[in-house]
C-alpha cells in the first residue's frame, strides 16, 4: 500500500456554541501522496478553515485522525508551512527578516549566513529581488503575498497549507501568482493543500480537487486533474478544462443544496 503523506480519516468536529454544538466537519476523508497538491473547494462556511487548523495541529478533531508522514498529528509540528489570505507580515521587520521568521523558531542545521542566502534565493524565485530591505507597507498586495509564500516554505516544510492565499488579489495578479506557484513547486517540491473558492485556481494549481459538502462538511466529490506539470493559463480554456469546471460547478451547487437549479438551467 502506498502511504499518503497527508491522511485525514473520517474526521468529525463540532464547535461548542451558546446554542449547543455546531458540527462543521462530519466524515471528512482526504489523502495526499508525497509531492501531491490537493485543492479543497466548497460552499462558504463549510469548515475549510477548520481543516487548515486541524492539519497544522492547532486544534484536535473530536473524532477521526489526521496523519502526517505516518505520524498522528497531536500538536503543532515544525514540518508545516502556512500562508493565509491575509499575508500577516510583521510591519516592523524588513521583507527579508519576515521571510526568515520561521527559522528563528524551527531549529535548522543552516548557519545564519545560509539562512539568509536561502531567504534571498526564495525571494528572487518569486520575483522579489531588490525588495529584501523594504518594509511590508512599501509593497503591493500581490508582492506581500509573494513574501508570505516565501516565509511559508523557508524552513523546507513537508506540508504547505494555503488558506485562500490569493483570495484578496485582483484577477491579473492572481494569475501571475498561479504561475509563480508552479515555478516554486518545480524548484522547491512540497506536498500541499490549497483551500480556495476559485474553481479555475483549483484545477490550474492542483492534481486533485476535493469538493466538500455544505456544513457539516464531508468529502462529497473527488476529481483528478489531468493537466501536465507544465501549465499555462491557456490550458484553462481547452474543452477538457471547460468540462472539468462544469462538473465542479455542478458539484458546488449540489453542496449548496441547489442542484435542481442546475438541472433546470440545463433543461432550458
Amino acid at each position: 500500500m502506498i502511504q499518503s503523506l497527508i491522511s485525514i480519516k473520517s474526521v468529525r468536529h463540532a464547535y461548542k456554541t451558546a446554542s449547543g454544538p455546531l458540527p462543521v466537519l462530519d466524515g471528512l476523508d482526504i489523502d495526499v501522496p508525497e509531492g501531491g497538491f490537493v485543492a479543497v473547494v466548497g460552499p462558504s462556511g463549510c469548515g475549510k478553515s477548520t481543516l487548515t487548523r486541524l492539519l497544522a495541529g492547532l486544534m484536535k478533531p473530536d473524532e477521526g485522525e489526521v496523519w502526517l508522514h505516518g505520524e498522528r498529528v497531536t500538536g503543532p509540528k515544525s514540518t508545516v508551512g502556512m500562508a493565509f489570505q491575509n499575508p500577516v507580515l510583521l510591519e516592523w521587520r524588513t521583507i527579508l527578516q519576515n521571510v526568515m521568521l520561521p527559522l528563528e523558531i524551527v531549529s535548522t542545521k543552516m548557519s545564519r549566513r545560509e539562512q539568509e542566502e536561502r531567504a534571498r534565493h526564495l525571494l528572487a524565485l518569486v520575483g522579489l529581488e531588490g525588495f529584501e530591505g523594504k518594509r511590508p507597507s512599501e509593497l503591493s498586495g500581490g508582492m506581500r503575498q509573494r513574501a508570505s509564500l516565501c516565509r511559508a516554505i523557508v524552513h523546507k516544510p513537508e506540508v504547505l497549507i494555503l488558506d485562500e492565499p490569493f483570495g484578496a488579489l485582483d484577477a491579473f495578479t492572481r494569475e501571475d501568482l498561479w504561475q509563480t506557484m508552479h515555478r516554486v513547486k518545480s524548484e522547491e517540491p512540497f506536498t500541499g493543500v490549497l483551500i480556495t473558492h476559485d474553481l479555475r485556481e483549483s484545477i490550474f494549481l492542483a492534481d486533485q480537487v476535493v469538493v466538500l459538502s455544505g456544513r457539516p462538511a464531508r468529502t462529497q466529490y473527488v476529481m483528478d486533474v489531468h493537466l501536465g506539470a507544465e501549465r499555462d493559463i491557456e490550458d484553462l480554456y481547452t474543452p477538457d478544462s471547460a468540462e472539468a469546471l462544469r462538473v465542479l460547478r455542478h458539484q458546488i451547487r449540489v453542496a449548496q443544496g441547489r442542484a435542481e437549479d442546475t438541472e433546470q438551467e440545463a433543461a432550458e
Binding site: 497544522a56 492547532l58 500538536g75 503543532p76 502556512m82 500577516v88 521568521l101 523558531i105 516565509r151 524552513h155
Partner: peptide
Amino acid sequence: RDILASLGA
C-alpha cells in the same frame, strides 16, 4: 498567532 503557533512556538 497561527504562523508561529503552527511551528510549535
